[in-house]
Design a protein around this nucleic acid. Structure first.
Length: 594
DNA sequence: GCTGCCTGCCC
DNA sequence: ATTCTGC
DNA sequence: GCAGAATGGGCAGGCAGC
Protein backbone atom coordinates (compact mmCIF):
# COMPACT_ATOMS: atom_id res chain seq x y z
CA UNK A 1 0.00 0.00 0.00
CA UNK A 2 1.75 3.14 -1.17
CA UNK A 3 1.55 6.64 0.15
CA UNK A 4 -0.08 9.49 -1.73
CA UNK A 5 3.24 11.26 -1.42
CA UNK A 6 4.88 8.53 -3.47
CA UNK A 7 2.14 8.83 -6.11
CA UNK A 8 2.60 12.60 -6.09
CA UNK A 9 6.31 12.18 -6.70
CA UNK A 10 5.54 10.03 -9.72
CA UNK A 11 3.16 12.72 -10.96
CA UNK A 12 5.82 15.33 -10.42
CA UNK A 13 8.47 13.46 -12.36
CA UNK A 14 6.05 12.93 -15.26
CA UNK A 15 5.02 16.56 -15.24
CA UNK A 16 8.61 17.71 -15.45
CA UNK A 17 9.29 15.93 -18.75
CA UNK A 18 7.71 16.27 -22.17
CA UNK A 19 8.77 13.00 -23.80
CA UNK A 20 5.91 10.55 -23.73
CA UNK A 21 8.38 7.71 -24.17
CA UNK A 22 10.00 8.69 -20.89
CA UNK A 23 6.63 9.06 -19.20
CA UNK A 24 5.74 5.57 -20.37
CA UNK A 25 8.87 4.15 -18.74
CA UNK A 26 8.07 5.89 -15.45
CA UNK A 27 4.48 4.67 -15.51
CA UNK A 28 5.54 1.12 -16.40
CA UNK A 29 7.81 1.11 -13.36
CA UNK A 30 4.89 2.30 -11.25
CA UNK A 31 2.79 -0.58 -12.56
CA UNK A 32 5.55 -2.97 -11.55
CA UNK A 33 5.89 -1.60 -8.04
CA UNK A 34 2.25 -1.06 -7.13
CA UNK A 35 -0.03 -3.84 -5.96
CA UNK A 36 -3.31 -4.62 -7.68
CA UNK A 37 -5.49 -2.28 -5.60
CA UNK A 38 -3.03 0.59 -5.72
CA UNK A 39 -2.60 0.43 -9.47
CA UNK A 40 -6.38 0.47 -9.95
CA UNK A 41 -6.73 3.57 -7.80
CA UNK A 42 -3.66 5.16 -9.36
CA UNK A 43 -5.13 4.62 -12.83
CA UNK A 44 -8.45 6.23 -11.91
CA UNK A 45 -6.63 9.19 -10.41
CA UNK A 46 -4.56 9.68 -13.57
CA UNK A 47 -7.95 10.12 -15.27
CA UNK A 48 -8.85 12.56 -12.49
CA UNK A 49 -11.70 10.34 -11.39
CA UNK A 50 -12.67 7.83 -8.72
CA UNK A 51 -14.59 5.56 -11.07
CA UNK A 52 -15.04 4.80 -14.77
CA UNK A 53 -16.71 7.38 -16.99
CA UNK A 54 -19.95 5.35 -17.06
CA UNK A 55 -20.31 5.51 -13.27
CA UNK A 56 -21.94 8.80 -12.23
CA UNK A 57 -19.38 9.84 -9.63
CA UNK A 58 -18.71 13.58 -9.75
CA UNK A 59 -17.17 15.90 -7.18
CA UNK A 60 -19.54 18.79 -7.99
CA UNK A 61 -16.87 20.97 -6.49
CA UNK A 62 -14.40 22.77 -8.63
CA UNK A 63 -12.26 25.86 -8.85
CA UNK A 64 -14.75 28.45 -7.59
CA UNK A 65 -15.90 26.28 -4.74
CA UNK A 66 -12.36 25.41 -3.69
CA UNK A 67 -11.26 29.04 -3.80
CA UNK A 68 -14.24 29.91 -1.66
CA UNK A 69 -13.35 27.26 0.89
CA UNK A 70 -9.67 28.15 0.93
CA UNK A 71 -10.32 31.86 1.25
CA UNK A 72 -12.00 31.30 4.60
CA UNK A 73 -8.70 29.95 5.89
CA UNK A 74 -6.02 31.68 3.85
CA UNK A 75 -7.77 34.91 2.81
CA UNK A 76 -7.45 36.72 -0.49
CA UNK A 77 -3.99 35.32 -1.05
CA UNK A 78 -5.66 32.30 -2.66
CA UNK A 79 -7.13 34.21 -5.59
CA UNK A 80 -3.97 36.21 -6.06
CA UNK A 81 -1.81 33.10 -6.20
CA UNK A 82 -4.25 31.31 -8.48
CA UNK A 83 -4.05 34.13 -10.99
CA UNK A 84 -0.29 34.27 -10.76
CA UNK A 85 0.29 30.52 -11.03
CA UNK A 86 -2.47 29.79 -13.53
CA UNK A 87 -3.21 26.65 -11.54
CA UNK A 88 -5.06 26.25 -8.28
CA UNK A 89 -3.05 23.16 -7.33
CA UNK A 90 0.22 25.06 -7.54
CA UNK A 91 -1.36 27.91 -5.57
CA UNK A 92 -2.43 25.58 -2.75
CA UNK A 93 1.01 23.98 -2.75
CA UNK A 94 2.53 27.37 -2.01
CA UNK A 95 -0.01 28.17 0.68
CA UNK A 96 0.26 25.08 2.82
CA UNK A 97 3.27 24.20 4.88
CA UNK A 98 2.41 20.99 6.61
CA UNK A 99 5.10 18.68 7.82
CA UNK A 100 2.90 15.66 8.22
CA UNK A 101 3.06 11.95 7.68
CA UNK A 102 0.73 12.42 4.74
CA UNK A 103 -1.96 10.02 3.63
CA UNK A 104 -2.03 6.71 1.84
CA UNK A 105 -3.09 6.60 -1.79
CA UNK A 106 -6.16 4.65 -0.74
CA UNK A 107 -6.85 7.20 2.00
CA UNK A 108 -6.96 10.03 -0.52
CA UNK A 109 -9.15 7.92 -2.78
CA UNK A 110 -11.59 7.42 0.11
CA UNK A 111 -11.57 11.17 0.79
CA UNK A 112 -12.44 11.86 -2.84
CA UNK A 113 -15.32 9.41 -2.59
CA UNK A 114 -16.70 11.21 0.45
CA UNK A 115 -16.72 14.41 -1.62
CA UNK A 116 -18.58 12.56 -4.38
CA UNK A 117 -21.04 11.02 -1.95
CA UNK A 118 -22.04 14.16 -0.07
CA UNK A 119 -25.16 15.57 -1.63
CA UNK A 120 -28.20 17.62 -0.69
CA UNK A 121 -28.78 20.58 1.56
CA UNK A 122 -25.59 21.67 3.32
CA UNK A 123 -23.37 19.59 1.07
CA UNK A 124 -21.45 22.58 -0.27
CA UNK A 125 -20.04 23.24 3.19
CA UNK A 126 -19.44 19.58 3.86
CA UNK A 127 -17.48 19.15 0.64
CA UNK A 128 -15.41 22.21 1.51
CA UNK A 129 -14.69 20.81 4.98
CA UNK A 130 -13.63 17.45 3.60
CA UNK A 131 -11.28 19.21 1.22
CA UNK A 132 -9.77 21.43 3.90
CA UNK A 133 -9.40 18.61 6.41
CA UNK A 134 -7.70 16.42 3.85
CA UNK A 135 -5.32 19.14 2.73
CA UNK A 136 -4.47 19.78 6.38
CA UNK A 137 -3.01 16.29 6.56
CA UNK A 138 -0.91 16.75 3.46
CA UNK A 139 2.50 17.97 2.46
CA UNK A 140 2.62 20.76 -0.16
CA UNK A 141 3.30 18.37 -3.04
CA UNK A 142 0.38 16.12 -2.12
CA UNK A 143 -1.89 19.14 -1.80
CA UNK A 144 -0.93 20.23 -5.31
CA UNK A 145 -2.12 17.04 -6.97
CA UNK A 146 -5.09 16.48 -4.67
CA UNK A 147 -6.37 19.92 -5.59
CA UNK A 148 -5.75 19.36 -9.28
CA UNK A 149 -7.65 16.08 -9.26
CA UNK A 150 -10.74 17.81 -7.87
CA UNK A 151 -10.41 20.75 -10.25
CA UNK A 152 -10.26 18.18 -13.03
CA UNK A 153 -7.01 19.23 -14.57
CA UNK A 154 -3.99 17.24 -13.51
CA UNK A 155 -1.78 18.68 -16.29
CA UNK A 156 0.64 15.76 -16.32
CA UNK A 157 1.05 15.74 -20.08
CA UNK A 158 -0.21 12.18 -20.14
CA UNK A 159 -3.48 10.41 -19.70
CA UNK A 160 -5.27 7.16 -20.44
CA UNK A 161 -3.54 6.35 -23.72
CA UNK A 162 -0.11 6.74 -22.20
CA UNK A 163 -1.23 4.46 -19.37
CA UNK A 164 -2.17 1.85 -21.96
CA UNK A 165 1.29 2.22 -23.49
CA UNK A 166 2.73 1.77 -20.01
CA UNK A 167 0.72 -1.41 -19.43
CA UNK A 168 2.19 -2.80 -22.64
CA UNK A 169 5.66 -1.67 -21.62
CA UNK A 170 5.26 -3.40 -18.25
CA UNK A 171 4.08 -6.64 -19.84
CA UNK A 172 6.49 -7.06 -22.75
CA UNK A 173 9.05 -4.27 -22.44
CA UNK A 174 7.78 -2.17 -25.35
CA UNK A 175 4.58 -0.67 -26.79
CA UNK A 176 3.86 -3.59 -29.10
CA UNK A 177 0.85 -4.81 -27.11
CA UNK A 178 -0.84 -1.47 -27.32
CA UNK A 179 -3.39 -2.89 -29.78
CA UNK A 180 -4.40 -5.50 -27.20
CA UNK A 181 -4.72 -2.77 -24.57
CA UNK A 182 -6.77 -0.60 -26.91
CA UNK A 183 -9.15 -3.42 -27.71
CA UNK A 184 -9.55 -4.36 -24.04
CA UNK A 185 -10.04 -0.81 -22.78
CA UNK A 186 -12.23 0.07 -25.75
CA UNK A 187 -14.49 -2.89 -24.98
CA UNK A 188 -14.72 -2.10 -21.28
CA UNK A 189 -13.84 1.53 -20.59
CA UNK A 190 -12.86 0.89 -16.98
CA UNK A 191 -9.17 1.66 -16.58
CA UNK A 192 -9.15 0.22 -13.05
CA UNK A 193 -10.50 -3.09 -14.29
CA UNK A 194 -7.95 -3.20 -17.12
CA UNK A 195 -5.17 -2.32 -14.68
CA UNK A 196 -6.22 -5.18 -12.41
CA UNK A 197 -5.97 -7.64 -15.32
CA UNK A 198 -2.48 -6.39 -16.08
CA UNK A 199 -1.45 -7.49 -12.58
CA UNK A 200 -3.03 -10.97 -12.82
CA UNK A 201 -1.28 -14.18 -13.76
CA UNK A 202 -1.35 -14.71 -17.50
CA UNK A 203 -2.33 -11.09 -18.13
CA UNK A 204 -2.31 -11.07 -21.94
CA UNK A 205 -4.74 -13.98 -22.06
CA UNK A 206 -7.15 -12.14 -19.75
CA UNK A 207 -6.78 -8.90 -21.69
CA UNK A 208 -7.43 -10.56 -25.03
CA UNK A 209 -10.61 -12.06 -23.61
CA UNK A 210 -12.15 -8.70 -22.73
CA UNK A 211 -15.11 -8.29 -25.07
CA UNK A 212 -18.08 -5.94 -25.08
CA UNK A 213 -21.06 -6.89 -22.92
CA UNK A 214 -24.40 -5.20 -23.73
CA UNK A 215 -25.18 -2.97 -20.77
CA UNK A 216 -21.62 -1.74 -20.40
CA UNK A 217 -20.70 1.02 -22.86
CA UNK A 218 -17.79 0.66 -25.23
CA UNK A 219 -15.66 3.59 -26.35
CA UNK A 220 -17.18 5.53 -29.22
CA UNK A 221 -15.19 5.68 -32.40
CA UNK A 222 -14.40 9.31 -33.28
CA UNK A 223 -13.75 11.09 -36.56
CA UNK A 224 -10.99 13.30 -37.89
CA UNK A 225 -11.94 16.42 -39.81
CA UNK A 226 -10.86 17.02 -43.36
CA UNK A 227 -10.99 20.35 -45.17
CA UNK A 228 -11.49 19.41 -48.81
CA UNK A 229 -13.10 16.79 -51.02
CA UNK A 230 -9.77 16.12 -52.70
CA UNK A 231 -8.33 15.03 -49.39
CA UNK A 232 -10.98 12.33 -49.27
CA UNK A 233 -9.85 11.05 -52.65
CA UNK A 234 -6.24 11.00 -51.49
CA UNK A 235 -7.11 8.94 -48.45
CA UNK A 236 -9.56 6.60 -50.18
CA UNK A 237 -8.30 6.02 -53.71
CA UNK A 238 -10.92 3.35 -54.38
CA UNK A 239 -14.34 2.95 -52.75
CA UNK A 240 -15.53 4.70 -49.62
CA UNK A 241 -18.72 4.88 -47.61
CA UNK A 242 -20.68 8.12 -47.23
CA UNK A 243 -23.18 8.89 -44.46
CA UNK A 244 -24.90 12.10 -43.37
CA UNK A 245 -23.52 13.97 -40.36
CA UNK A 246 -26.37 14.78 -37.99
CA UNK A 247 -26.09 17.67 -35.56
CA UNK A 248 -27.35 15.98 -32.45
CA UNK A 249 -26.29 13.79 -29.58
CA UNK A 250 -24.22 10.63 -30.03
CA UNK A 251 -26.08 7.65 -28.62
CA UNK A 252 -24.93 4.07 -28.11
CA UNK A 253 -27.96 1.80 -27.96
CA UNK A 254 -27.59 -1.44 -26.00
CA UNK A 255 -30.22 -4.16 -26.17
CA UNK A 256 -29.54 -6.71 -23.48
CA UNK A 257 -30.55 -10.26 -24.35
CA UNK A 258 -32.73 -12.38 -22.04
CA UNK A 259 -30.09 -15.03 -21.84
CA UNK A 260 -27.36 -12.66 -20.78
CA UNK A 261 -25.76 -13.35 -17.46
CA UNK A 262 -25.23 -10.73 -14.81
CA UNK A 263 -22.93 -7.83 -15.44
CA UNK A 264 -21.38 -8.24 -12.02
CA UNK A 265 -18.41 -10.32 -13.08
CA UNK A 266 -16.42 -7.19 -13.77
CA UNK A 267 -14.97 -6.10 -10.49
CA UNK A 268 -13.70 -2.65 -9.85
CA UNK A 269 -12.15 -1.63 -6.60
CA UNK A 270 -14.30 1.48 -6.21
CA UNK A 271 -17.40 -0.71 -5.86
CA UNK A 272 -16.56 -1.06 -2.20
CA UNK A 273 -16.80 2.69 -1.78
CA UNK A 274 -19.62 3.51 -4.14
CA UNK A 275 -23.14 3.74 -2.77
CA UNK A 276 -25.32 0.98 -4.16
CA UNK A 277 -27.51 3.25 -6.27
CA UNK A 278 -24.63 4.07 -8.59
CA UNK A 279 -23.22 0.57 -8.69
CA UNK A 280 -24.43 -0.64 -12.05
CA UNK A 281 -22.38 -3.79 -11.65
CA UNK A 282 -24.39 -4.86 -8.65
CA UNK A 283 -26.96 -5.89 -11.22
CA UNK A 284 -30.08 -6.17 -9.07
CA UNK A 285 -32.21 -6.26 -12.18
CA UNK A 286 -30.67 -6.10 -15.61
CA UNK A 287 -32.67 -3.69 -17.79
CA UNK A 288 -33.67 -4.53 -21.37
CA UNK A 289 -32.13 -1.46 -23.00
CA UNK A 290 -29.49 1.07 -22.05
CA UNK A 291 -28.39 4.27 -23.82
CA UNK A 292 -25.03 6.00 -23.50
CA UNK A 293 -23.53 9.25 -24.81
CA UNK A 294 -20.25 9.60 -26.62
CA UNK A 295 -18.50 9.98 -23.28
CA UNK A 296 -20.34 6.99 -21.84
CA UNK A 297 -22.84 8.79 -19.65
CA UNK A 298 -26.02 6.81 -19.05
CA UNK A 299 -28.92 8.62 -20.79
CA UNK A 300 -31.38 5.72 -20.85
CA UNK A 301 -34.13 7.66 -19.06
CA UNK A 302 -33.94 10.68 -21.35
CA UNK A 303 -35.20 9.04 -24.53
CA UNK A 304 -38.03 6.59 -23.70
CA UNK A 305 -39.14 6.50 -27.36
CA UNK A 306 -35.71 5.21 -28.38
CA UNK A 307 -35.76 2.60 -25.62
CA UNK A 308 -39.17 1.38 -26.71
CA UNK A 309 -38.13 1.20 -30.34
CA UNK A 310 -35.04 -0.80 -29.42
CA UNK A 311 -37.21 -3.33 -27.61
CA UNK A 312 -39.55 -3.63 -30.58
CA UNK A 313 -37.00 -3.97 -33.34
CA UNK A 314 -35.24 -7.09 -34.56
CA UNK A 315 -32.29 -8.67 -32.82
CA UNK A 316 -32.19 -10.44 -29.46
CA UNK A 317 -29.23 -8.40 -28.30
CA UNK A 318 -27.14 -5.69 -29.91
CA UNK A 319 -25.03 -2.59 -29.52
CA UNK A 320 -25.76 0.12 -32.09
CA UNK A 321 -24.09 3.45 -32.73
CA UNK A 322 -26.44 6.31 -33.51
CA UNK A 323 -27.06 10.04 -33.42
CA UNK A 324 -30.17 11.34 -31.65
CA UNK A 325 -31.73 14.40 -33.31
CA UNK A 326 -34.93 16.32 -32.65
CA UNK A 327 -37.50 16.16 -35.43
CA UNK A 328 -40.21 18.61 -36.44
CA UNK A 329 -42.79 16.29 -38.02
CA UNK A 330 -45.06 19.10 -39.21
CA UNK A 331 -42.42 20.87 -41.25
CA UNK A 332 -40.37 17.72 -41.81
CA UNK A 333 -37.25 19.41 -40.56
CA UNK A 334 -34.45 18.47 -38.23
CA UNK A 335 -34.37 20.52 -35.06
CA UNK A 336 -31.35 22.60 -34.11
CA UNK A 337 -28.70 21.21 -31.82
CA UNK A 338 -29.84 23.66 -29.14
CA UNK A 339 -33.41 22.39 -29.29
CA UNK A 340 -32.34 18.76 -29.31
CA UNK A 341 -30.23 19.39 -26.23
CA UNK A 342 -33.26 20.42 -24.19
CA UNK A 343 -34.15 16.73 -24.22
CA UNK A 344 -31.00 15.97 -22.28
CA UNK A 345 -32.83 16.27 -18.97
CA UNK A 346 -33.83 14.46 -15.83
CA UNK A 347 -37.32 15.85 -15.24
CA UNK A 348 -40.31 16.71 -17.42
CA UNK A 349 -39.35 14.26 -20.12
CA UNK A 350 -42.91 13.34 -21.14
CA UNK A 351 -43.94 16.97 -21.68
CA UNK A 352 -40.80 17.71 -23.64
CA UNK A 353 -41.33 14.61 -25.76
CA UNK A 354 -44.43 16.29 -27.24
CA UNK A 355 -42.54 19.33 -28.51
CA UNK A 356 -39.20 17.74 -29.18
CA UNK A 357 -39.67 14.17 -30.38
CA UNK A 358 -36.40 12.55 -31.42
CA UNK A 359 -35.16 9.95 -33.82
CA UNK A 360 -32.01 7.96 -33.28
CA UNK A 361 -30.31 7.51 -36.64
CA UNK A 362 -28.39 4.24 -36.41
CA UNK A 363 -25.26 4.06 -38.50
CA UNK A 364 -23.33 1.11 -37.11
CA UNK A 365 -23.62 -2.11 -35.15
CA UNK A 366 -20.80 -3.44 -32.99
CA UNK A 367 -22.46 -6.39 -31.26
CA UNK A 368 -25.23 -8.62 -32.53
CA UNK A 369 -27.06 -11.58 -31.04
CA UNK A 370 -24.48 -12.61 -28.52
CA UNK A 371 -21.39 -11.82 -30.58
CA UNK A 372 -19.09 -8.86 -30.84
CA UNK A 373 -18.49 -7.92 -34.46
CA UNK A 374 -15.96 -5.13 -34.00
CA UNK A 375 -13.50 -6.70 -36.42
CA UNK A 376 -15.93 -7.24 -39.26
CA UNK A 377 -15.57 -4.82 -42.14
CA UNK A 378 -17.56 -1.61 -41.93
CA UNK A 379 -19.50 -2.48 -45.10
CA UNK A 380 -20.43 -5.86 -43.72
CA UNK A 381 -21.44 -4.44 -40.36
CA UNK A 382 -23.78 -2.08 -42.13
CA UNK A 383 -25.41 -4.99 -43.95
CA UNK A 384 -26.01 -6.58 -40.55
CA UNK A 385 -27.49 -3.34 -39.32
CA UNK A 386 -29.92 -3.06 -42.24
CA UNK A 387 -31.39 -6.47 -41.43
CA UNK A 388 -32.54 -5.26 -38.02
CA UNK A 389 -34.94 -2.77 -39.58
CA UNK A 390 -38.45 -3.54 -40.70
CA UNK A 391 -41.02 -1.23 -42.23
CA UNK A 392 -43.07 0.75 -39.74
CA UNK A 393 -43.05 3.51 -37.19
CA UNK A 394 -39.93 3.64 -35.07
CA UNK A 395 -37.85 6.20 -33.25
CA UNK A 396 -34.78 4.34 -34.46
CA UNK A 397 -34.18 4.98 -38.14
CA UNK A 398 -31.53 3.56 -40.42
CA UNK A 399 -29.04 6.20 -41.46
CA UNK A 400 -28.61 6.10 -45.26
CA UNK A 401 -25.36 4.89 -46.73
CA UNK A 402 -23.76 5.31 -50.14
CA UNK A 403 -20.78 3.36 -51.32
CA UNK A 404 -18.96 5.04 -54.17
CA UNK A 405 -15.57 5.85 -55.62
CA UNK A 406 -16.63 9.13 -57.20
CA UNK A 407 -15.76 12.39 -55.49
CA UNK A 408 -18.43 14.01 -57.66
CA UNK A 409 -21.07 11.85 -56.01
CA UNK A 410 -19.65 12.78 -52.62
CA UNK A 411 -20.07 16.46 -53.49
CA UNK A 412 -23.65 15.86 -54.55
CA UNK A 413 -24.49 14.03 -51.34
CA UNK A 414 -22.82 16.77 -49.31
CA UNK A 415 -24.96 19.40 -51.05
CA UNK A 416 -28.09 17.35 -50.58
CA UNK A 417 -27.48 16.84 -46.86
CA UNK A 418 -26.65 20.51 -46.29
CA UNK A 419 -29.92 21.33 -48.05
CA UNK A 420 -31.72 19.08 -45.58
CA UNK A 421 -30.28 21.09 -42.69
CA UNK A 422 -27.61 18.57 -41.76
CA UNK A 423 -24.04 19.31 -40.74
CA UNK A 424 -22.11 17.61 -43.54
CA UNK A 425 -20.95 14.11 -44.30
CA UNK A 426 -19.02 11.31 -42.66
CA UNK A 427 -16.78 9.26 -44.94
CA UNK A 428 -15.47 5.84 -43.94
CA UNK A 429 -13.10 3.19 -45.13
CA UNK A 430 -15.46 0.37 -46.13
CA UNK A 431 -12.93 -2.29 -45.18
CA UNK A 432 -11.93 -1.05 -41.72
CA UNK A 433 -13.24 -2.39 -38.42
CA UNK A 434 -14.92 -0.54 -35.53
CA UNK A 435 -11.95 0.43 -33.42
CA UNK A 436 -13.41 1.64 -30.11
CA UNK A 437 -12.02 4.99 -29.01
CA UNK A 438 -9.94 5.52 -32.15
CA UNK A 439 -9.79 8.93 -33.75
CA UNK A 440 -8.03 8.41 -37.03
CA UNK A 441 -8.51 9.02 -40.73
CA UNK A 442 -10.42 5.79 -41.35
CA UNK A 443 -13.47 7.80 -40.32
CA UNK A 444 -13.50 11.41 -41.46
CA UNK A 445 -15.97 14.27 -41.47
CA UNK A 446 -16.48 17.13 -43.86
CA UNK A 447 -18.52 19.89 -42.26
CA UNK A 448 -20.49 22.54 -44.08
CA UNK A 449 -18.19 25.12 -42.52
CA UNK A 450 -15.46 24.25 -45.09
CA UNK A 451 -17.58 26.05 -47.64
CA UNK A 452 -16.66 29.74 -47.67
CA UNK A 453 -20.14 30.71 -48.75
CA UNK A 454 -21.62 29.13 -45.68
CA UNK A 455 -19.08 29.97 -43.04
CA UNK A 456 -19.56 32.93 -40.75
CA UNK A 457 -16.59 35.29 -40.62
CA UNK A 458 -17.01 38.45 -38.59
CA UNK A 459 -14.94 41.46 -37.57
CA UNK A 460 -15.20 42.01 -33.84
CA UNK A 461 -13.87 44.69 -31.53
CA UNK A 462 -11.70 43.57 -28.62
CA UNK A 463 -13.33 44.59 -25.34
CA UNK A 464 -10.94 42.92 -22.91
CA UNK A 465 -9.04 39.77 -22.11
CA UNK A 466 -8.82 36.95 -19.60
CA UNK A 467 -5.84 35.59 -17.69
CA UNK A 468 -4.98 32.11 -18.84
CA UNK A 469 -4.57 28.80 -17.06
CA UNK A 470 -1.83 26.20 -17.33
CA UNK A 471 0.55 26.84 -20.16
CA UNK A 472 -1.28 30.04 -21.06
CA UNK A 473 -0.57 31.60 -17.67
CA UNK A 474 2.99 32.46 -18.68
CA UNK A 475 1.57 34.72 -21.39
CA UNK A 476 -0.67 36.51 -18.90
CA UNK A 477 -3.55 36.04 -21.30
CA UNK A 478 -5.68 33.07 -22.26
CA UNK A 479 -8.65 34.40 -24.19
CA UNK A 480 -10.04 37.58 -25.74
CA UNK A 481 -13.50 39.12 -25.46
CA UNK A 482 -14.97 40.28 -28.77
CA UNK A 483 -18.00 42.48 -29.43
CA UNK A 484 -20.12 43.84 -32.26
CA UNK A 485 -20.89 47.50 -32.98
CA UNK A 486 -24.30 48.91 -32.32
CA UNK A 487 -24.55 52.08 -34.47
CA UNK A 488 -27.87 53.17 -32.93
CA UNK A 489 -26.48 53.53 -29.44
CA UNK A 490 -22.86 53.89 -30.61
CA UNK A 491 -21.86 51.12 -28.24
CA UNK A 492 -19.90 47.90 -28.44
CA UNK A 493 -21.71 44.83 -27.18
CA UNK A 494 -20.03 41.59 -26.12
CA UNK A 495 -20.69 38.59 -28.31
CA UNK A 496 -18.10 35.87 -27.76
CA UNK A 497 -14.84 34.94 -26.15
CA UNK A 498 -12.08 33.70 -28.44
CA UNK A 499 -9.48 31.32 -27.06
CA UNK A 500 -8.31 29.28 -29.99
CA UNK A 501 -6.65 29.84 -33.36
CA UNK A 502 -3.76 31.61 -31.68
CA UNK A 503 -0.15 30.39 -31.64
CA UNK A 504 2.13 30.73 -28.61
CA UNK A 505 4.09 33.36 -30.51
CA UNK A 506 0.98 35.42 -31.22
CA UNK A 507 -0.01 35.61 -27.57
CA UNK A 508 2.99 37.81 -26.82
CA UNK A 509 2.09 40.23 -29.61
CA UNK A 510 -1.55 40.28 -28.63
CA UNK A 511 -0.87 40.95 -24.96
CA UNK A 512 1.64 43.67 -25.87
CA UNK A 513 -0.82 45.46 -28.11
CA UNK A 514 -3.77 45.19 -25.73
CA UNK A 515 -1.73 46.37 -22.75
CA UNK A 516 -1.18 49.71 -24.50
CA UNK A 517 -4.94 50.37 -24.36
CA UNK A 518 -5.86 48.93 -20.97
CA UNK A 519 -8.55 50.82 -19.08
CA UNK A 520 -9.34 50.50 -15.38
CA UNK A 521 -13.08 50.10 -15.75
CA UNK A 522 -15.58 49.13 -18.35
CA UNK A 523 -15.87 52.09 -20.78
CA UNK A 524 -19.29 53.77 -20.95
CA UNK A 525 -19.77 52.84 -24.60
CA UNK A 526 -19.28 49.14 -23.87
CA UNK A 527 -21.96 46.63 -22.79
CA UNK A 528 -20.91 43.26 -21.47
CA UNK A 529 -22.99 40.24 -20.58
CA UNK A 530 -22.41 39.63 -16.86
CA UNK A 531 -20.90 36.17 -17.13
CA UNK A 532 -18.39 37.34 -19.74
CA UNK A 533 -16.74 40.03 -17.62
CA UNK A 534 -13.06 40.03 -18.57
CA UNK A 535 -10.15 40.19 -16.12
CA UNK A 536 -8.77 43.21 -17.99
CA UNK A 537 -10.80 45.81 -19.90
CA UNK A 538 -9.39 47.56 -22.93
CA UNK A 539 -10.53 50.58 -24.86
CA UNK A 540 -12.64 49.34 -27.80
CA UNK A 541 -10.38 50.06 -30.75
CA UNK A 542 -8.68 46.86 -31.96
CA UNK A 543 -10.56 44.95 -34.66
CA UNK A 544 -10.07 41.18 -35.12
CA UNK A 545 -11.41 38.67 -37.62
CA UNK A 546 -13.14 35.66 -36.12
CA UNK A 547 -14.39 32.55 -37.84
CA UNK A 548 -17.28 30.43 -36.57
CA UNK A 549 -19.54 27.61 -37.66
CA UNK A 550 -22.75 29.53 -37.03
CA UNK A 551 -24.44 32.38 -35.22
CA UNK A 552 -26.36 31.29 -32.15
CA UNK A 553 -28.86 32.92 -29.82
CA UNK A 554 -28.77 32.39 -26.10
CA UNK A 555 -32.36 32.29 -24.91
CA UNK A 556 -31.49 33.10 -21.34
CA UNK A 557 -29.80 36.45 -21.77
CA UNK A 558 -30.92 38.62 -24.62
CA UNK A 559 -30.06 41.92 -22.99
CA UNK A 560 -26.64 42.35 -24.62
CA UNK A 561 -26.27 42.04 -28.41
CA UNK A 562 -29.74 40.45 -28.41
CA UNK A 563 -28.17 37.31 -27.00
CA UNK A 564 -26.29 36.69 -30.24
CA UNK A 565 -23.11 34.68 -30.12
CA UNK A 566 -20.91 32.38 -32.20
CA UNK A 567 -20.65 28.60 -32.25
CA UNK A 568 -17.04 27.35 -32.27
CA UNK A 569 -15.31 30.74 -32.55
CA UNK A 570 -11.62 30.91 -33.54
CA UNK A 571 -9.27 33.77 -34.27
CA UNK A 572 -8.28 34.29 -37.90
CA UNK A 573 -6.53 37.63 -37.70
CA UNK A 574 -5.60 39.96 -34.87
CA UNK A 575 -5.51 43.74 -35.24
CA UNK A 576 -7.07 44.41 -38.60
CA UNK A 577 -6.30 47.83 -39.98
CA UNK A 578 -9.84 48.98 -39.42
CA UNK A 579 -11.81 51.43 -37.33
CA UNK A 580 -13.96 49.90 -34.60
CA UNK A 581 -17.08 51.54 -36.12
CA UNK A 582 -16.41 49.48 -39.23
CA UNK A 583 -16.64 46.19 -37.33
CA UNK A 584 -19.58 43.87 -37.88
CA UNK A 585 -22.76 45.43 -36.55
CA UNK A 586 -25.36 43.78 -34.42
CA UNK A 587 -27.84 43.84 -37.33
CA UNK A 588 -25.33 42.28 -39.71
CA UNK A 589 -24.73 39.51 -37.20
CA UNK A 590 -28.46 38.93 -36.87
CA UNK A 591 -28.73 38.59 -40.66
CA UNK A 592 -26.02 35.94 -40.64
CA UNK A 593 -28.11 33.73 -38.39
CA UNK A 594 -29.57 30.94 -40.47
C1' DG B 1 -40.63 29.94 -4.11
C1' DC B 2 -37.56 32.51 -6.91
C1' DT B 3 -32.86 33.76 -8.64
C1' DG B 4 -28.01 33.50 -9.38
C1' DC B 5 -23.95 30.94 -9.24
C1' DC B 6 -21.56 26.85 -10.08
C1' DT B 7 -20.79 22.39 -12.13
C1' DG B 8 -20.92 18.84 -15.55
C1' DC B 9 -21.61 17.55 -19.99
C1' DC B 10 -23.08 17.98 -24.81
C1' DC B 11 -21.34 19.85 -29.17
C1' DA C 1 -16.37 21.44 -30.46
C1' DT C 2 -11.31 24.00 -32.80
C1' DT C 3 -6.67 24.72 -32.68
C1' DC C 4 -1.81 24.45 -31.51
C1' DT C 5 2.50 21.82 -30.05
C1' DG C 6 6.16 18.34 -28.83
C1' DC C 7 7.42 14.05 -30.01
C1' DG D 1 -0.25 11.81 -37.13
C1' DC D 2 -0.99 10.97 -32.25
C1' DA D 3 -1.90 12.55 -27.70
C1' DG D 4 -2.56 16.11 -24.79
C1' DA D 5 -3.86 20.64 -23.32
C1' DA D 6 -5.36 25.16 -24.13
C1' DT D 7 -9.77 27.36 -25.33
C1' DG D 8 -15.36 28.28 -27.17
C1' DG D 9 -21.41 28.43 -26.54
C1' DG D 10 -25.10 26.69 -24.18
C1' DC D 11 -28.14 23.27 -22.02
C1' DA D 12 -30.11 21.21 -17.29
C1' DG D 13 -29.77 20.63 -12.44
C1' DG D 14 -28.34 21.39 -7.59
C1' DC D 15 -27.66 24.29 -3.95
C1' DA D 16 -27.41 28.77 -1.24
C1' DG D 17 -29.36 32.84 -0.12
C1' DC D 18 -32.92 35.91 -0.10
Amino acid sequence: MISFLKASEIFQSIESISSRNEMTVILAEAVRVLDEKDIQVFSYLVQGRVAPMFIPAEYNLSEKGLINALSNVYGNEVSVLRKKEGDLGSAVEKLVDHKTKGLSLIGVYEALWTVVNSQGSGSVDIKAQIFLNTVKQMSPLEARYFTRIIVGSLRLGCSTRTLLDAFSMFLVGDKSKRDVMDKAYGSCADIGYIASLVKEDNPLKHLEEVVPIPGIPILSRLVERVKSFDEVKDRFPSTFMVQPKYDGLRCQIHKIGDSQKSLSERIWFGRQTAPSHIDMFGGVQVPKVKLFTRNLEDITDMFPEVVESAINMGGDSFILDSEVVGWNAKEKKFLSYQDTMTRRRKYGIEERQQNIPVNAFAFDVMYLDGKEILNRKTGERFENLEKLFEKGESSIQLSPVYITNEVEELRELFKEYIGMGLEGVIVKDVDGGYSPGARDFEWIKIKKSIDNNLVDTVDLVVLGYYLGSGKRSKFGIGAILGGVYNPDSETYESVTKIGTGITDEQWGTIKGRLDTIVVKEKPKNVAIEGIMKPDVFVSPEVVITVDADEVSVNRKSESVARGLSLRFPRLIEFDRDKNPEDATTIDELLLMKK
